[in-house]
Design a protein around this nucleic acid. Structure first.
Lengths: 339, 339
DNA sequence: ATGAAAGCGCTAACAA
DNA sequence: TTGTTAGCGCTTTCAT
């Protein structure tokens, strides 16, 4: 590993001059073209590369971004993969490396936080769909001078800038799409809170009534396959065993692609035709939307984009700029199930 | 950020003593219990944390692992996710952060390599199913003193230790499982090379004949859904339009879960029953094995485990130890499709 | 049992 | 146009 002083010695000049030239950082003054040229040439020959820990030590920064990813309860959805890609891509641009931790339980998160401090990293990105009670720990870290940006459904606290996708908008968009495709009696599986509101808002905007019987009761707030199966079974049972339900419901909005596939499989087994009898849409735009018996329409939550934004925001914050939460628009992906 | 000298000043002692005590690194001598205690107490109070770039600068190491991940042509399989989890988990244990880059084309890999050197990272892990012509670049980096460990199907070069899963064994295991389940005429979709050999080996071991007509011709060496669809169509067509093919083939080994799901959907549409008429198995143990109409048996390539091993091997290599390639056993996961 | 000093590689204020 | 110097925070050898 060649260092600045190697170059300086070889050329019989001072280290600082070499540094200035190689950094294009001469201030008001200039270096002679000849010297500059010689320096660059020698640097090239020696394969000189900056030592990043020396730079870090000098600048008081670490050039490391902490990344805490809540291992989302949706294996195979590719959400984390997209998130990581976005973060990695943008971090690379800023020459930041990543200290990556996956966590599941809040306790895991807690203990991971122990290793987080300004001597280790400059900032922290916390991602995942669910936000639990991370707020206190993050505020503490923030108070200690560590910049924090979250990628969650909702901002945790005004001091913790967040990259959000509005969940009401996600559900509204999904429901609106089915309405546009001609559905008039749209059921909803497993939603609550903003998602439920968004669903109702879309119906209202279209002048359609809300039928509470079409909102599948759901005590688990989980996004898994089985919830979709049970939701579909509930809808089918509602028609007292008859398998052809046109008229009773003609569209289903699920809360995840897993749920949607669960419902899809159940409908198909029961002899319903998708999209002819029922149109279906999921949420997340998972890779397996392409692999179901009928390919699945979905709404993407733009995790790659959000990862990239979060890094940029964090870099701004580290640079001392004021950073504010942003909202990213979800995107509709139409496939067979709602054609 | 409290530093060693803060502690030293507060206690009116020298920095070096503080360093020694906090590192449990006193050599042959000892520090008075009282002083040691005071140091630890003050460190605690001040929330002292080591500055990692100072340590890195001093030690000549970066404590950064480069991770290059070949964005595998299998979105949704979760392979990269598992790989990253394994790597992240183990890197954390060794207090290493990660410089993460995803690449697709060899040219992307090339240009990423430009940023790779000893002033940036101590070692490099290259992961992905496919190994292209990365060898030359990696050997160059290795020659420059950067340790490299790969996570590929096969070692690239004796100087580049690899964490392998034997592809012949993967196919053999899949085929063997179907034989054990009672299949006698097992087709193979899309395989070649070691995978094809493994398939044949399993048949041979069981004393079953190889029927070339059951090896679906496949000009794309790709693992995608459509290849599975076409493979299944080929098998169905072979029976001149009849849909009940018991006797013609009773098992199918695919080269990926995507392929397997493509074949599954095609069989189901054609009226075949799975697993009654045909038993099916995929490879990768993707998350969506659980979400197909009939849940899919599969063979996992243990990417999490391999990621962890790779980090350990790399740390050994960085520490100057001799490191050799290892082989990890694939694991069978039985679900409905082969019950 | 404790401390002084040197130095890792780099940058930047200041001097010449 | 170029150089000197100090110092970022830490470890480690060699004193005391």
């Amino acid at each position: 590993m060649a260092s600045l002083s190697d170059i300086a010695q070889d050329l019989g000049i001072s280290v600082s001059l070499v540094s200035k030239v190689l950094n294009d950082n001469l201030g008001t003054t200039r270096a002679s073209t000849k010297t500059a040229h010689a320096i660059r040439k020698r640097a090239m020959e020696l394969g000189y590369r900056k030592n990043r820990s020396a730079v870090a030590l000098k600048s008081g920064r670490q050039n490391v971004l902490g990344v805490f990813v809540h291992r989302q309860g949706l294996p195979g959805s590719g959400l984390n993969e997209h998130l990581m890609e976005g973060i990695a891509f943008e971090a690379m641009k800023f020459h930041q490396s990543i200290s990556l931790t996956f966590f599941e339980a809040a306790s895991e998160f807690r203990s991971s936080c122990e290793h987080v401090h300004r001597g280790t990293m400059d900032g922290l990105i916390v991602g995942g769909v669910r936000h639990t009670e991370l707020e206190k720990d993050l505020l503490r870290l923030n108070a200690e001078g560590l910049k924090v940006v979250t990628i969650l459904n909702d901002e945790l606290h005004p001091l913790l800038p967040n990259v959000k996708v509005d969940q009401g908008e996600v559900a509204r968009m999904a429901t609106h799409h089915l309405i546009e495709r001609g559905c008039r009696r749209i059921a909803q599986i497993g939603g609550e809170g903003p998602r439920l509101d968004g669903y109702k808002a879309a119906l209202r905007e279209a002048g359609l009534p809300t039928d509470e019987a079409l909102v599948c009761p759901c005590n688990e707030d989980d996004f898994v396959f089985e919830v979709g199966v049970r939701g579909a079974e509930y809808l089918l049972a509602g028609d007292a065993g008859s398998c052809l339900l046109a008229g009773r419901f003609d569209g289903v909005v699920a809360q995840s692609d897993q749920q949607a596939v669960g419902a899809l499989n159940t409908f198909l087994r029961a002899g319903l035709r998708v999209p002819d009898d029922v149109r279906l849409i999921g949420i997340d735009n998972s890779a397996y939307c392409e692999f179901s018996m009928i390919s699945l329409s979905s709404i993407s939550q733009e995790f790659q984009q959000r990862g990239r934004l979060a890094v940029r925001m964090l870099m701004d914050a580290v640079a001392g700029k004021q950073v504010r939460s942003v909202t990213v628009k979800p995107v509709l992906h139409v496939r067979q199930s709602s054609k």
